[in-house]
């Protein structure tokens, strides 16, 4: 038996406009694959914004984009690299 390293390729990506975020945390809580976590940094209005913690598990479902009340985050599906 040989060890096969399973390299997981992300199927999607999340794009965040940190300046527009108000730190409600909906995206972090309801992400189905738990990609996001709250950042320790602040934006210029003093809110914590989300950051991508586990980029390889993003499926690009855009549920974060549907939940975000401030239109500050959205997911895109990545095309498979051949």
């Amino acid at each position: 038996m040989t060890d096969v390293a399973i390299k997981k390729e992300p199927r999607g990506a999340v794009l965040i406009t940190a300046e527009r975020c108000k730190g409600c945390g909906f995206c972090v809580e309801f992400c189905p694959t738990k990609v996001l976590s709250m950042s320790d940094e602040y934006n210029s209005k003093g809110y914590h914004f989300p950051k991508v913690a586990v980029p390889e598990s993003c499926s690009g479902c855009d549920l974060c984009g549907m939940y975000c009340p401030d239109f500050a985050i959205f997911g895109i599906r990545l095309k498979k690299s051949a």
């Binding site: 108000k22 409600c24 909906f26 984009g65 549907m66 939940y67 975000c68 009340p69 401030d70 239109f71």
Partner: peptide, 9 residues
Amino acid sequence: GCGLGTTVN
């Protein structure tokens, strides 16, 4: 935390 933006989405 207001849900209105979500409904607009």
